[in-house]
């Protein structure tokens, strides 16, 4: 476990917990609407964006030479 690897996998764990653990029930409400979008949808959008950007960071940091 390198520091970078711990950061990436820790971030993934955090994101999936926020989206799929019973914590989602805390976000399961219409109000407050943010920019006219119900809170449950904003919550999902935020953590989806967080994980997608994290996947990009993972790619850029490879998560000497023969690959193909």
């Amino acid at each position: 476990f390198t520091t970078r690897k711990l950061t990436i996998y820790g971030g993934l764990l955090l994101g999936f917990i926020m989206l799929e653990s019973p914590l989602i029930l805390v976000a399961n409400q219409v109000e407050p609407m943010i920019m006219g979008i119900p809170f449950l949808f904003v919550w999902n959008l935020f953590w989806w964006a967080f994980l997608t950007v994290l996947f990009l960071v993972a790619y850029l940091t490879n998560w000497s030479n023969r690959d193909s």
């Binding site: 994101g15 999936f16 989206l19 799929e20 449950l40 949808f41 999902n44 959008l45 953590w47 989806w48 994980l51 997608t52 996947f55």
Partner: peptide, 8 residues
């Protein structure tokens, strides 16, 4: 909406 997470 859980489709966002299942795609990831």
């Amino acid at each position: 909406l859980t489709a966002l997470a299942w795609n990831l």
